[in-house]
Design a binder for these strands. Structure first.
Length: 781
DNA sequence: TCAGCTCACACTTTTGAATAGC
DNA sequence: AGCTATTCAAAAGTGTGAGCTG
């Protein structure tokens, strides 16, 4: 029934065999991967599993993540990290190498990586720096990379370095490999999510999301900044050949070119002169040889002269650089002999790693990045580096609602401006050879539930002396779902299967449960590599911000109660965006969707909600309400406030007096964007912990509004089941409004994602080196 | 004209199968 | 027979630069 090939078996340590049984090549017979739709509902009705591990809860609150190769990231960040994306997919370099702690050793967790846009801008490399030059392109299908070890026990994760270097990025919007699809020349922020998985059939129970500001990057199809190229070549073993002493270095390439030319010249000589008179083949100036090459290029190749002259032995040979010792190679060989788990996690970039990285670090002074080691702080105003996400600090938070400084319509990327706190970072000071950085993980506290209509500080300024932000215990049920729609405009799906289960299902299905940010140290004093844990809560949507004068596309959409949808058939119906789909939605669908009938049975209640909830538009700013964050702040990049899990709704409400946001597309550079500068905030992605602590809460409409995957008309070119009158949003909010949404319900959440993962190859992309999930619904249509 | 993208290329590392030795 | 180490070839990951596209 299901092809396990979808998820090639992974090399598992003996300790994990039991953890990952589902990865066997043969599907376990006892594993109901495709439970009937209503079966899922039934299970959803059942009382959620009792959290019998209180210890886990306490530990959960202390989950920490460290970016092990933070110094390398900061090296790049200080220049302006660029990531190549190709149609076939390109790995990230540097890769994310993490250290986890605070997990319950006995519980299983799933690690996910997703990459979200930092803002709604498109960038261009101008004048040695990155400048925002316009609005971002439409958001692409959200895809998540699942760490190949997932699920594994906390002990497993904590016992080694976790690497996501297998994840690939692509700019191919029709990618069928499941790589993470990104737009070129856009700025992105990777996020890592740790999700508790009681077993294969039970996802949810707790989620922690981490963000490392220094891992922001701009996607490119070709490197723009020479400094980045240099850094990549010097630090990526695969690019070793391009180093000055490498065989593919400029010098060597030139030499090869000359040899080639000389060969051609010889050919010419053979044609015109004595075939055996190689004495005429003398080194020539590059210019002349190039010209000759051009002239000769059109000549048909001739048979090798019988005189025995070999171009390889040409006079240019002496220009070659002596063969390099295999020192590095040996280092790799050594590492390759290490246990699989180790080699995998250690990643290539660090295997030779310490060597390469260290050399870079040691060279940092000579690489024109003196500021880096000192504090990784403010680069010159005209620095070519793009600003990295600011680390949480009081100032940033307080400025969140302030729109006064957000009027810069055309912000050029400011220099990296890591908070001064970084300067004291032990990590930075230790741009040491030790790959294991003494970094502090900052776990952002979840904000207290907010019932007020006014924004409240997400983090108290009274930060504890500790450098670590702790997540708080599961919120009070009543406070969990600030977004809990009491709004009747959000009628439950009409599916017979779900009708009665709506609430409960919803409550269990959203990973992102509102969890208040309690206090917190929002101004870490020491954080070289701060892991920003997304607040557990999506701040209450206190008070629906003023309705936008500009009608929202979706608002015009007539109610589409259940959308047994004539979902647009998209050729590449390759994704099963279940995660992003509210439970009731998931409940209705797909298990048996076949390629041939990719959509017939799909119901997207959310869509109807979206269409029916104009009020929500205010509460949950539609895409159009998101403006160019980067253009609104001096440091557009990473809004520290975002780390505080300021949901878009919160943001919206946080600046009630702000003028209606203009459609981003219309004013990527418009000053009005300033008002929503906070929209770049990170959304809360911390899920509720245990289902029972999460009262039946209807799904939050925000999910629809903010998750492009749930917006049926994202791509205007795609047919839609909705009236054409409803203009599809072409621009989606910045990453801030894209919390990771997974089904929290143990059953539904699992069955869906796994179905997705194993059965639908096109949808859930299984790779020996990890799996990808489409988090978007769009792709499936 | 030009910015951005695609592709082939040469080089490198990684991976896994095959083999040999114990 | 089972395990480990070594060898080898194929696959895959790099940046480059020419050429193409809109």
């Amino acid at each position: 029934m299901l092809s396990v090939e979808m998820f090639p078996s992974l090399a598992l340590g003996p300790q994990r065999i039991g953890d990952c049984f589902y990865r066997d090549r043969e599907p376990p017979a006892h594993m109901p991967l495709f439970p009937p739709t209503c079966d899922v509902a039934q299970r959803l009705l059942a009382p959620p599993p009792v959290p019998n591990e209180p210890a886990a809860k306490t530990q959960k609150d202390e989950v920490k993540m460290e970016l092990e190769n933070a110094s390398l990231w900061k090296q790049f960040s200080s220049v302006g990290t660029e990531m190549i994306i190709t149609k076939k997919g390109r790995r990230m370099f540097p890769g994310l190498r993490l250290k986890l702690s605070g997990l319950n050793p006995t519980l299983r967790y799933i690690l996910l990586l997703d990459i979200i846009p930092v803002d709604n801008s498109r960038y261009r490399f101008q004048g040695g720096g990155w400048q925002a030059v316009g609005g971002a392109e439409a958001r692409l299908p959200d895809r998540v990379f699942i760490h190949p070890d997932s699920p594994a026990t906390g002990a497993h994760w904590q016992s080694r370095t976790i690497s996501f270097h297998y994840a690939k990025l692509t700019n191919n919007t029709l990618d069928s490999q499941g790589h993470i699809i990104l737009h070129s020349l856009h700025r992105y922020q990777p996020r890592v999510h740790v999700i508790e998985a009681r077993d294969v059939l039970r996802w949810g129970g707790g989620q922690h999301s981490f963000v490392f500001p220094e891992t922001q990057f701009i996607t490119v199809t070709a490197y723009q900044n020479n400094k980045i190229t240099e850094l990549k070549i010097n630090s990526n073993p695969f690019a070793k050949g391009f180093r000055e002493d490498g065989m593919n270095s400029k010098k060597q390439r030139d030499a090869r070119q000359k040899r080639k030319i000389s060969a051609l010249t010889e050919t010419l000589d053979i044609v015109n002169c004595d075939p055996c008179d190689s004495t005429q083949l003398l080194p020539q100036p590059a210019a002349s040889t190039d010209l000759q090459a051009l002239a000769l290029a059109s000549l048909p190749p001739l048979p090798d002269p019988s005189c025995g002259y070999r171009p390889e032995d040409a006079p240019y040979q002496d220009t070659l650089v002596p063969e390099q010792p295999l020192v590095l190679g040996q280092a790799f060989m050594h590492s390759s002999q290490m246990p699989v788990s180790i080699s995998m996690t250690s990643g290539m970039q660090d295997t030779p790693g310490s060597e390469v990285t260290n050399s870079i670090i040691e060279r940092s002074d000579t690489m024109g990045d003196p500021a880096y080691t000192s504090s990784f702080p403010a680069a010159p105003a005209n620095s070519s580096s793009f600003p990295s996400a600011s680390l949480p600090q009081s100032a940033s938070f307080s400025s969140l609602p302030d729109s006064s400084n957000t009027s810069d319509p055309q912000p050029s990327i400011p220099p990296i401006d890591y908070p001064s706190t970084l300067s004291s970072s032990p990590t930075l000071s230790s741009a040491s050879s030790s790959p294991s950085l003494q970094q502090t993980s900052f776990t952002f506290p979840t904000p207290p539930p907010s019932n007020s209509s006014s924004p409240q500080p997400l983090l108290s300024s009274s930060s504890p002396s500790s450098n670590t932000y702790h997540t708080i215990p599961p919120p009070n049920p009543e406070m969990i779902s600030p977004h809990t729609p009491t709004d009747t405009s959000f009628p439950p799906p009409s599916s017979s299967c779900q009708s009665g289960l709506q609430d409960q299902m919803s409550a269990h299905s959203l990973l992102s449960q509102g969890e208040p940010i309690t206090s917190g140290n929002n101004s870490p004093n020491d954080q070289s590599s701060a892991a920003f844990i997304y607040p557990n809560i999506l701040p209450a949507n206190p008070d629906p911000a003023p309705v936008h004068a500009q009608p929202l596309p979706n608002q015009n959409q007539p109610p589409a109660p259940t959308l047994p949808c004539s979902l647009p058939t998209h050729g590449a119906s390759t994704s099963f965006p279940f995660h992003s789909v509210p439970p009731h939605m998931q409940n209705l669908s797909f298990p048996n969707v076949s390629p041939s009938s990719a959509h017939p049975t799909l119901h997207l209640p959310n869509l109807s909600h979206q269409a029916q909830a104009p009020a929500l538009a205010a509460a949950f700013p539609p895409p159009s309400s998101f403006t160019h964050p980067s253009s609104s702040l001096p440091h557009p990049p990473f809004q520290p406030s975002s780390c505080l899990a300021v949901s878009s709704s919160f943001q919206q409400s946080s600046a009630p007096s702000l003028p209606p946001a203009t459609h981003p597309q219309n004013l990527p550079n418009a000053p009005a964007a300033s008002s929503t500068s906070s929209t770049s905030s990170y959304p809360s992605v911390e899920i509720g912990t245990i289902p029972q602590f999460n009262p039946p809460a209807p799904y939050r409409p925000e999910m629809m509004l903010h998750h492009p995957s749930l917006l049926p008309q994202l791509d205007p070119s795609l047919p839609s089941c909705l009236p054409s009158s409803a203009a599809p949003p072409t621009l989606y909010p910045a990453f801030s409004s894209y919390p990771l949404r997974l089904c929290q319900d143990p059953h539904s959440s699992l069955s869906i994602p796994l179905r997705h993962l194993y059965r639908q190859h096109q949808h859930g992309h299984a790779h020996p080196q990890g799996a990808y999930l489409d988090m978007s619904a769009r792709a499936m249509f």
